[in-house]
Amino acid sequence: MSSRTLPAPSAPVSPDGRERPLVALDDVSVAFQTRTGLFRMGEVRAVNGVSLAIARAETLGLVGESGSGKTTVGRVSLRLIEPASGRVFFDGIDITKTPEHDLGWLRKRAQIVFQDPFSSLNPYMRVIDLVEEPLVIDGVHGKAERWDRARRALEDVDLVPAGRWATRYPTAMSGGQRQRVGIARALVRDPDYIVADEPVSMIDASSRIEILQLLRGLQTGRGVAFLYITHDIASARHFADRIAVMYQGSLVEVGASGQVIDQPLHPYTRSLIAAVPEPDPANRFRRRAVGGVAQAAGEIVHPDCPHGPDRANEPALLLPFTSDPAHLVACHVEAPHGR
């Protein structure tokens, strides 16, 4: 495949009227091989026909349960895995089939921050070695230049004075401080795009906000685009421009963060919102309606769907909601203009 084709002009979930998206997935599916017996192999479709686009300096919150395929979407957008079908674009360049040895440029421009800062940092390395490691791999040989860039990255994540943090070991640091080191490691290459996969779920509730604010600051200050993968839809409201909700490998709803939460259209989005324990006296002691029974591939009907399973076998598409074309939902009943 040629390495310089433009993205599909009608990527169905691209934000309206903006310039070419930085990251675009067009009808991407990902399948994993599984063993079902000693010799038999099966196939699991982790992602099923997902299309989405992330603009420069935008944060897209990708929300869903464990097993919904949200981490796989993040990884395919970085081309850490190859999709079974569909196309992946970065800055207009089709990277769907590009072999790894031709992706060096992408490995500098796109980064990942992992969920677990306790296991993703080598405990035998000092902070400075951890942050400089990507530069060593990139062949930045000048010691002064490496230190200069590492110091800037440490300052950008508020580990100041950088000189004092540089010689510490992650084992002597709190979860929040370790995650800052993880973010500095991603930043030291000056990326345009960062996949943050549950970056705060292992951190105390009271320390999460400063990490999320830090990421928000990198987005607005340095113009980094983020895919913020989380199961915490309340945090996505405050730290993402748009929210995309995933269920069973497919997107079921996409829209502006406030709108998806204040006017959720898909029954699954509603049940995710109902599951959040808000610290509000009026909300206490309520039994929460929660679903999540496994469905056959291709059916996007939540067990609690009030519209019933009768249309379950129709293909699920993200369709625009009547009053707001940027708010899309994969629900036949809620998007009457769609078909």
Partner: peptide, 16 residues
Amino acid sequence: LASLPRLHGDRPPSPM
């Protein structure tokens, strides 16, 4: 309490 992201309303959470 102020550090929790609230589902409804746009008041941003405040860091501890």
